[in-house]
Amino acid sequence: MSAPSSSSLSIRDLHASIGDKPILKGLTLDIPKGEVHAIMGKNGAGKSTLAKIMAGHPDYTVTSGDVLLDGESILGIEPDVRARLGLFLAFQYPMEIPGVTIANFIRAALQARLPEGEELEATDYYAKLYSKMDALSVPRNFTSRSVNEGFSGGEKKRCEILQMAMLEPSYAVLDETDSGLDIDALKIVSAGVNALRGPNIGMLVITHYQRLLDYIVPDKVHVMSEGRIIHSGDKDLALKLEAEGYDWVEKEYSAGKSAV
């Protein structure tokens, strides 16, 4: 196990449970800034749970291990503080918030990042918001619509990426961002994500299907099973998983374990 880089999102031997039920069982993963990693795995492998635990969802308890953001532990820190430290979670099922407009929502999120007493500059804010919306093909009148209310699946996911573009996180976890998208929506969302790639951000893309990784090409692919990473490889691993399924990885992993 390599030492966590000071410029990475680093998950060290993480164990977590919901109630009495263990979900993560010693998961280790290091996502350096500038890289895009993908986690693939069957339903029930714990992928979405991992995303929620990193964001600090109150339903889950971390029993051991650590999550380090640029070398500092974020466990025990409130979800909003984690977000302001630079962590972003694109939700698989974004919440609808009746009566709260997208413009006011993102504005509140940006305002929360400013020092006390400092006001967000409205003109600059809207200029930036509109340019990001245009890039994601989100109609401008969406600013006055309530967050996610009545949105199609594709609109919700575009709205998640819009928030990510506005908040400029250092690390982003994208939880099944492809679910519920048709191919056109998938292309738009992927282009939006790719536009944000760069040396100042590390991304973790959680997906069920290899399809997304045709558009968001990862630097590394990890296979998750029963709460652990059981195999890692380059982008070609995704293609192999698509063609051959997960059984061979699980077999290899079991064999490796019994050999130890």
């Binding site: 909003d80 972003f88 979670l89 509140a108 999120a109 929360a112």
Partner: peptide
């Protein structure tokens, strides 16, 4: 809804 807003960095009271 509260968790979603906090995950965007909005403190719980403001959320």
């Amino acid at each position: 809804e509260l968790f979603y807003m906090m995950a965007r960095g909005i403190p719980p009271k403001q959320a």
